[in-house]
Amino acid sequence: MSTVRRVAVVGWGAIGRVVGTALAEGRVTGAELVCVVDNRPLGEAAPVRQATFEEAMETCDLVVEAAGQGVVREWGERVLASGTDLLIASTGALTDDELTKRLLTAGPGRVYFTGGAVGGLDLLQAVRTLGPLDEVRLTTTKLPSTLEQPWMDDELLARMRTATGPVEVMSGTARDVPVKFPKSTNVAASVALAVGDLDAVRVQVVADPAAHHTRHVIEASGGHGAYRFEVAHLPDPGNPATSQVVPYAVLRSLAALAGRTGQIL
């Protein structure tokens, strides 16, 4: 006899609202939305009660993080230590090696992450077992306004705001870039987790005023082959820093965790 997953969604924003609504409407077999955790008032639109993190850990067996990297850092270990499983959408938090080690040993709860707005991660994981990849590159292109950050100097901001074509905003590794763009480059961390090496993935962030779609291009090569994946998503209208598809990737991960069968995992 199957057990229904009792789920808490953390964050009632662009991602959490879609995930929570789908759960409340019974669209994920084997999963039930019990509560929502958010430090802002949810209003009458929320389908279930608002709860604290402590209440969520007491009443649920799975917490879905949809509120940003800071939540993973502050609450991840406590959720797992309570025996509650954790599904992470903000994979950029896992660029912190020490945090990742603590999460992996914090049990008895189990930690999972979703690939979010990019595909091909399962193939990269499979190739990795054949041997190391010689080169892995990710190029992310977004509208300039979605990439502006407090650390940017006036010169860079001016270049982005007056750009008539693509402008490189930053290049570095998958360890460096998600820290600088905590809401925009979780994809870099997801690729690195699949490859198994944060420092091996070179990342380029590009601002383009013509980028009506958010674009991610992954290029990888090694002794066993060469691989290229390209995706172009519509930004979420409520939060253009994230792609519209992300909450549906979370829902797919939830469906797998809830035990739905007959699909490619």
Rank of each mutant, 00 (worst) to 15 (best):
T3F: 14
T3K: 10
V4N: 06
R6N: 14
R6Y: 14
V7A: 09
V7C: 11
G11R: 03
W12D: 08
W12S: 11
G13E: 12
V19L: 04
G20V: 06
T21D: 15
T29Q: 13
T29R: 08
E32Y: 10
C35Y: 05
D38Y: 01
R40Q: 13
G43Y: 10
A45F: 06
V48S: 02
V48I: 12
Q50M: 09
A56P: 06
M57D: 07
E58K: 15
C60G: 03
L62F: 01
G68P: 06
R73T: 07
E74I: 04
E74T: 07
W75F: 12
G76Q: 02
G76Y: 00
V79F: 00
G83T: 03
T84N: 02
A93E: 08
T95L: 01
E98M: 11
K101P: 00
L104P: 02
A106G: 06
G107I: 00
P108I: 00
G109D: 02
G116R: 04
G116C: 02
G120M: 01
L121T: 02
L123V: 10
A126S: 11
V127D: 01
G131N: 06
D134S: 15
D134I: 07
L143Q: 12
P144C: 04
S145V: 11
T146W: 03
L147M: 12
M152V: 04
L157Y: 10
A158N: 14
M160S: 13
R161Q: 05
R161S: 08
A163I: 10
T164S: 15
E168L: 03
V169D: 00
T173Y: 06
R175M: 09
V179D: 03
F181W: 13
P182D: 11
A188D: 15
V191M: 14
A192M: 12
V195C: 11
R202P: 01
V203E: 04
P209R: 10
P209M: 01
H212I: 11
V217Y: 04
V217A: 12
I218E: 03
I218T: 08
E219I: 02
E219D: 10
G223I: 03
G223H: 09
A232N: 14
G238I: 04
V250Q: 04
R252W: 08
L257Y: 05
A258V: 14
G259P: 08
G262F: 15
Q263A: 07
L265P: 03
